[in-house]
């Protein structure tokens, strides 16, 4: 495992082990395709998932590619940062055809444009006209109170409705 970490540090990337079989690499945006295809060539053939974290204070999205190598039982977490206003990212479909589905989901929940992905149509949500829901500035309680017409307050229950008598 340390052989991989040293190799990646040799390529000028910042890599550190998380556990004895998992390490993470943070990669600038342009070198993601290069690092992913390099890892795929050295045994990380299984693409596990693509996650996206919305760092709203730093104004950035963080894309997390997770790969797994079955030969030497390792887990590689490749992270990259992309700017938050009109975020675009090149699609990794050429390396793994599987990314098409994960990128379509991240596009719908965060609004990231994946250049090269043939099919970014709506996936889970039907006629959604608001900002992508998993962004930090989307308030789900205000949305559901508006849409489903019920009133709820945020203080987790410390309030005194007047009309209750015990049964």
């Amino acid at each position: 495992m340390l052989k991989h970490v040293e190799k990646l540090r040799g390529m000028g990337l910042e890599a550190n082990p998380l556990k004895d079989w998992e390490f993470e690499v943070s990669v600038p945006k342009e070198r993601v395709a290069e690092v992913l295809s390099y890892l795929k060539s050295t045994g990380f053939k299984a693409f596990i998932h693509l996650a996206c974290v919305d760092w709203i204070d730093e104004g950035e999205f963080e894309l997390v590619y997770n790969l797994e190598s079955y030969e030497d039982a390792l887990q590689a977490v490749v992270k990259t940062r992309i700017p938050r206003n009109n975020p675009t990212m090149e699609s990794m479909i050429s390396i793994w055809g599987l990314c098409q589905v994960y990128e379509r989901e991240v596009h719908e929940f965060f609004g990231i444009e994946f250049v090269g992905n043939p099919n970014l149509k709506p996936f889970f949500l039907e006629n959604w006209m608001d900002i992508p829901p998993l962004r930090k500035d989307f308030n789900t309680l205000v949305y559901s109170e508006e849409l489903f017409e019920f009133k709820e307050d945020e203080t987790h229950g410390i309030k005194a409705p007047k009309r209750i008598e015990h049964k």
């Binding site: 987790h156 229950g157 309030k159 005194a160 409705p161």
Partner: peptide
Amino acid sequence: CGSCAKVCPANAIMMVES
């Protein structure tokens, strides 16, 4: 004390004057 109302994940408990 209301700690049960605070910890409820479903916001189901309300503290009511009795």
